[in-house]
Design a protein around this nucleic acid. Structure first.
Lengths: 97, 97
DNA sequence: GTAAAGTGGTTTATTTTATAAACCAAAATA
DNA sequence: TATTTTGGTTTATAAAATAAACCACTTTAC
């Protein structure tokens, strides 16, 4: 009855990041940090997890002399997000038996 | 932008239990165990947490000689569930900026 | 009747996660 | 030139989920 929820997406910060990236071509680290109201440490860790799963790509460059991390959702990430949203519906629409 | 999700509800098993109880007058331990496909140990722990938060009530009696645990959602639980579902929408409907 | 397995759980231990704290290099500011 | 700020990473700690072990009692099989 209840499908398992993708544990990578069923976590507040990672879900927020993915949600933002779903509607954005790309987003910078600092932008995500602000929008999600997270600490840099936490965000850094969670971005790495999403990247390791292949849900997002991370491009690390420099803007002038300062580091610049740019994030993009991948096709795999889009698919995973959509699947997650779909699976979650079972939990939210409390269907009677 | 992203409201904090109630950590008590943002957990697969507890959410599944609450989802079931939203549409049921009451449910027995074994019923919830089957429907959620969980182990007795895990379910026991998570039910206790929901009960401690006042989201459900647990009635422990006997049926014949065997223990019988009956679970019910409380008004507080209903409110929390509805709030959670509402908050979650922000994360799912990826609104552009 | 008594050993073995099953029911309906609880308790404790282990693993996994999330979060926070500490740190680092470079740059900007005072 | 010391101090703070920026843009992060790495490491340590706290919290959570899960699994394993256990318990009381019952039923079934010898």
């Amino acid at each position: 009855m209840f499908k398992d929820l993708d544990p990578l997406l069923h976590a507040q910060l990672r879900l927020a990041v993915m949600s933002l990236l779903m509607s954005l071509e790309s987003a910078e680290f600092t932008f995500l940090k602000e929008k999600t109201n997270s600490t840099a440490g936490n965000l850094s860790v969670q971005l790495d997890k999403l990247a390791e799963a292949g849900y997002i790509s991370l491009e690390k460059t420099f803007r002038g002399k300062k580091p610049l991390t740019t994030c993009r959702i991948t096709p795999k990430g889009v698919a995973a997000f959509e699947q997650y949203v779909n699976d979650l519906k079972q939990y939210l629409n409390h269907n009677p038996l």
